[in-house]
Design a protein around this nucleic acid. Structure first.
Lengths: 117, 117, 117, 117
DNA sequence: GTGGTCTAGACCACT
DNA sequence: GTGGTCTAGACCACC
């Protein structure tokens, strides 16, 4: 379910955060869904539980999940916000990339044409 | 000439590589142009010569520069290819991003509209 | 295990690369085998860790090993290809040498005779 | 006439020596032939006269050329010896390469077959 | 002065 | 403990 790239400069815990956020944005993980336990996810991904713990802490600070010490960890009702943020980030990224390409001598029209094709 | 961000997760040597590639793509650095010596660039950027060396080695492996032990370092005749590769990469990146955003429930038309605006 | 010739014109890091490649080709080092850590090999060979690192980086670029920051370094699944490439290179080298010798006025038959003897 | 590889680990002056020896062995340069002046060869090759000087000194020590300060530099009558030495070196090289390949699990017969083909 | 190599040693993030 | 990065500084051959 969660794809990790061990060679990436992005630390594993951060990749986990992004993957969970992605699933929340995609509505694969929905409000009140139960997350796997830290220990379980660690086993599934073949990594250290501390790494998963770190990811969960960040997600909790971002208000995306909620931990009840006895009941487990659940997705909060923040999905709408997550989607909007992801979209905004994506748009910004594309804008930047286009500006970069324009500097290389290719026009905005050509870029859009190539992208659509 | 070369901007470095010391706080970035991207290592300095890689930032140098990207900057040089950018200047080659922009035709600021042209075929047969002499690069600053390793020591000189190190002084200019206020970093260690080994770090510059690492960047130069990578650029040489990529076929963008050419080092002669006693003569110095020069831009190769691969500039055209560098531009094309950069553009291709950029287009691919945008395509991926768009696909990602579409999955979040926003249409291709909306994306383009937001990007142009 | 790894023999170094400090007087050779071939740099130490390259000797390490060749030795590892040789062991991979000879199937002494097999797919998924764990390599000694950079620090450990440096101690074993009595050289600086940076020199070992350089060799490992080259081997990684060649696709022969794979480094995980916290887990260590492993042989990839490219062993078959390594052998084939080594053999191909060797054959080509011999062919070249024979052509060179033929130009000096010695026949192919004489060469083979002298070589076998 | 003389091919130089600036990227090689073999120093330029040594490459010049080898090239001259090669031409002597090939009978392209014959006994009593006049060599170009140091200055002229330096210009032709686009290198420093000191480098050519070094090569000439080595060739003279090897008895392959002979310098008369006023008349110029000439090929000596050592051509036969040069050829024999080159052939001997070549044979040794091939023998080594074959032994190396045999260790990779390919038989001597297979090698010869591949080489002839 | 130029690039190439190597040492010694430090700090970092991640596990 | 592991690899990744960087610094400081040295020596070398070559030109």
């Amino acid at each position: 379910m969660i794809n990790l790239d061990y060679k990436s400069r992005v630390p594993i815990y951060e990749q986990i955060v992004m993957e969970i956020e992605r699933y929340v944005a995609l509505d694969v993980l929905k409000e009140n869904d139960k997350m796997p336990s830290i220990r379980q996810m660690a086993i599934d991904l073949g990594i250290n539980p501390n790494t998963v713990k770190k990811a969960y802490t960040i997600l909790e600070n971002k208000g995306i999940i909620n931990s009840h010490s006895t009941k487990g960890t659940f997705i909060t009702n923040s999905t709408k916000r997550v989607v909007d943020k992801k979209i905004e980030e994506g748009i910004l990224y594309i804008k930047d990339k286009i500006m970069e390409l324009e500097k290389l001598g290719i026009s905005r029209e050509e870029i859009i044409e190539k992208v659509i094709k």
